[in-house]
Simulated scan of single mutants.
Amino acid sequence: MTGSDSESTTEPPVVVKVGGARAVDPAGAVGDVAHLAANGRSVVVVHGGSTVVDETLERLGIEPEYVESASGVTGRFTDAETMEAFAMAMAGKLNTELTAEFRSAGVDAVGLSGVDGGLLAGPRKSAVRVVEDGKRKIRRGDHSGRIESVNADLLTGLLDDGYTPVVSPPMAGDEGDGEVTPVNADADRAAAAIAGALGADLVLLTDVSGVYADPDDPETRIDAAATPEGLAAVEDAAEGFMGKKVMAAKEALEGGSGRVVIADANVRDPVVAALGGEGTTVERSALGDGSEDADEPEGVETDGGETA
């Protein structure tokens, strides 16, 4: 056995989340995943796609609608019509195209939605609490959900057979009567759930180099958080779309991931660089001895409606 083969058997899997915004170029991640897979590292790719979902809606003459939850998180309101476009864009167009990119790079990629094999599952939330004009309201007819289970056996079976799963929302929404409905789920949190279930390292790729203490100054990047105080500093610094990524990072660690790195997708060798310490790395030790559950937005789930 070669040294690289021996090393790969002791390394945890890697879950790579590729952002869905136009500012994020997946080419570097594709090359890195090909490199890691060729060297025996198990990799699962999860992708977002809010920009393409919005473009699909606009082509269909549907206005994308975003709402604010009572906890201040902004996310997509996904009615039945929007859900059709969401599934077309995410599981249809984007997942197929990204899987083809990986296969072109020599990766034995398999495209999956969260519905396939019950890969990502949880209860559907058909009614959500939102804030409109400063008032709290209940909006009904939503197709969203929170992931409560991951079919890790499906992923490990594919990984053991040498395949690289490429996963996208939607997830399998449980209606409570045995029926399953495809529903919207946040791609960062989907990646977090998978990383936790597999005990994997999680790399969240975006269009900035990490979490900045001053959101307007890249020179203030927080390189690492290994204590509860360090995690609190990261949470305090995270604003806007970065807040969602830090929430996902915490959920991944609570679920069983060893570390999470938030890093730039557009640098050379972005995944390898992130695993080597480039970006903001949050270690599991940052949860402390007794971690609490991550704050849960009240009802509004997003599909990665982020800037990256």
Rank of each mutant, 00 (worst) to 15 (best):
V67M: 09
L36W: 00
V53I: 10
G72M: 00
G48S: 00
E68A: 15
L57E: 12
L36F: 02
V52R: 14
V67A: 14
G61I: 08
R41T: 02
I62N: 07
G49R: 02
H35S: 06
E65H: 13
G48C: 06
A38N: 05
A38T: 02
D79P: 04
S69T: 10
T74A: 12
E58H: 12
N39P: 04
V44E: 00
R76Q: 11
Y66N: 13
T74W: 12
Y66K: 14
V45R: 02
H35F: 07
R59N: 15
S69P: 09
E58W: 12
R59G: 14
V44A: 01
V67Q: 11
E63P: 10
I62D: 09
V45F: 02
T74Y: 11
Y66S: 13
R76Y: 09
E68K: 15
F77C: 04
V33T: 01
A80I: 04
E55L: 14
A38Y: 05
V44H: 03
T51V: 08
R41H: 06
V67N: 11
S50W: 08
R59L: 14
L60V: 06
V45A: 00
F77K: 04
R59Q: 14
L60G: 14
E63C: 06
S50R: 08
T78S: 02
V46G: 05
G75H: 08
E68R: 15
S69I: 08
A38H: 02
L57W: 13
H47F: 05
V67W: 07
E58K: 15
Y66H: 12
E68H: 14
S42A: 07
E55Y: 13
G48Y: 03
G49Q: 05
L36H: 04
F77D: 07
T74N: 10
L57G: 12
L60T: 09
L57V: 14
V73Y: 05
A37T: 00
V46Q: 03
T78V: 00
G49S: 04
T56M: 15
S71H: 11
A37S: 06
G49K: 03
A70D: 13
P64D: 09
A37F: 02
V43L: 03
V46A: 03
L36C: 00
H47G: 07
I62Y: 10
A70I: 12
V73A: 08
F77G: 02
G61A: 06
G72E: 07
V67L: 11
P64K: 11
E55Q: 15
R76G: 08
G72N: 06
Y66V: 14
A70T: 14
L36P: 05
T56D: 14
Y66P: 09
V43D: 00
G48K: 04
V33N: 01
G61W: 05
V43N: 00
V44F: 04
V52Q: 15
R41Q: 04
S50N: 11
A70L: 15
H35E: 02
S69F: 10
A70E: 12
E58R: 15
V43T: 03
E65F: 09
G49P: 01
T78L: 01
D54G: 13
G49I: 10
R59I: 12
G40H: 05
G75M: 06
S50I: 09
L57F: 12
